[in-house]
Amino acid sequence: MVSLTVNGSPQQIEADPATPLLYVLRDELALNGAKYGCGLGQCGSCTVVVDGEAVLSCMVPIMLLEGREITTIEGLGTIDAPGPLQEAFIELQAAQCGYCIPGMMMSAHALLRRNAQPSEEEIREALATNLCRCGTHMRILAAIRRAGELMQAASLPATDQGRAG
């Protein structure tokens, strides 16, 4: 049995210790945001965040995750209350087919937790393991920059955001 926390909820996982995290998320916890793409760690569609770092969940066996904090796309917000990253991707229409988007967003989430104002080079570096065949890269880059702005605005008092206080 492996104990871990997924999207803030403690989980006890009874599975073969060599089972990749991706299968546990999808098959045991019904969290289907992380996608199976290549199964080889080459496409990034399975990216989740483990203890603040972007991780390819198809490559990480659950035995290495005892006591760790995992965040999936489902942990960023909901349909009714999207998080800043989701809000920015919606606002800028950064998704086309959407298959790669959860992985892109999770890589961006890890980056924005460290640096809410990343340069284009830093964003590109953070997304280096995430592939997109639809060609929405420029909108994805813009959405990540916008999410950083939204995150910064959310952390300021109302008077600092230009609103009457």
Rank of each mutant, 00 (worst) to 15 (best):
L65Q: 11
P82H: 07
A95S: 15
D80R: 11
F89W: 07
I79Q: 15
I101G: 00
I62L: 13
L85P: 07
I62E: 09
T71G: 00
E69V: 00
I101Q: 12
L65I: 12
L64S: 14
G77P: 07
P82C: 02
L76F: 10
C97S: 03
I70M: 04
G77L: 05
E66D: 10
C100N: 03
M63Q: 14
R68T: 09
I79F: 15
E87Y: 03
A95L: 14
L85M: 01
A94L: 09
L76K: 15
E69P: 00
I90C: 05
G83H: 14
C100R: 03
E74G: 03
G75M: 04
I79T: 15
I90G: 07
E66S: 12
E91L: 06
I101D: 01
T78Y: 11
Q93K: 13
E87D: 08
I79D: 15
Q96C: 07
Y99L: 13
Q86H: 02
I70D: 09
D80L: 14
Q96I: 14
A94W: 05
I101Y: 01
Q93F: 11
G98D: 07
E69A: 00
M63S: 15
T78C: 09
C100I: 05
C100S: 06
Q93H: 14
I79E: 15
G83P: 11
E69C: 00
I62F: 09
G98Y: 06
G75E: 07
F89Q: 12
C100T: 10
E69Q: 02
L92R: 09
Q86N: 06
A95T: 15
I79Y: 14
L65T: 09
G83F: 08
I101S: 06
P84T: 12
T78D: 11
I70A: 05
A88W: 04
I73M: 10
Q93I: 10
G98E: 04
L92P: 07
M63K: 15
F89G: 06
Q86K: 05
E87R: 14
